[in-house]
């Protein structure tokens, strides 16, 4: 018995090794949002054109809330045309795309909007209040809100056509506002 006991010393490192091996399966940068299923925080911003932009104005619609910045290369540049394309396609079906520009300079952001000919409402979050309210880590991050105004999905990274359609179609298929 005493002889066997000492072999526990090398075996003691196995749990540690197993834990480290487990580490390969997780991404330390992928942090789930606690906001899923919760009502989306309200905000009131002013668009680049100077019109007020609030979430309350779009109550009853499926909202795609996209956080971006002009310095976010290349992901934001990849998704901007995707968002514009899908916005045009879905705008008449009770879907609205809202862009929030964070940690940015106004000129650069306006150039970005012009360059991609974005027609959906875009506003700058000057103080960071909206991005913190949504628990934003970086850009781009996109939130899909259902018609009751609850956050249903958080997508990190560039939005593709497939991601946009899958989420929006699912939320549209749900029964409308109560």
């Amino acid at each position: 018995m005493r002889r066997l006991w000492r072999w526990l010393i090398p075996l003691a490192v196995l749990p540690v090794l197993a834990l480290l091996a487990y580490g390969f399966r997780v991404d330390p940068r992928d942090i789930p949002s606690p906001l899923i299923g919760r009502p989306a925080p309200a905000f009131g911003l002013t668009t680049f054109e100077g019109t007020p932009l609030s979430l309350a104005a779009h109550r009853g619609k499926v909202v795609v809330l996209n956080f971006w910045a002009s310095w976010c290369q290349p992901a934001c540049y990849e998704e901007a045309p995707v968002l514009e394309r899908n916005w045009r396609e879905y705008r008449d079906r009770g879907v609205v795309v809202v862009g929030v520009d964070i940690q940015d300079r106004r000129e650069a952001a306006e150039k970005f909007v012009r360059e991609f000919g974005l027609t959906f409402p875009n506003a700058q979050d000057l103080t960071g209040a909206v991005s913190v309210d949504y628990g934003v880590y970086g850009v781009p991050e996109t939130f899909f809100l259902d018609r009751q105004g609850r956050i249903r999905v958080k997508h990190v990274g560039a939005v593709t056509d497939a991601v946009f359609r899958a989420n929006v179609d699912r939320l549209l298929a749900e029964p409308g506002s109560p």
Binding site: P32, S33, L35, D133, Y134, G135
Partner: peptide, 9 residues
Amino acid sequence: YFVDRYGEW
């Protein structure tokens, strides 16, 4: 307030 938005992380 921050924990509610970002989690315990």
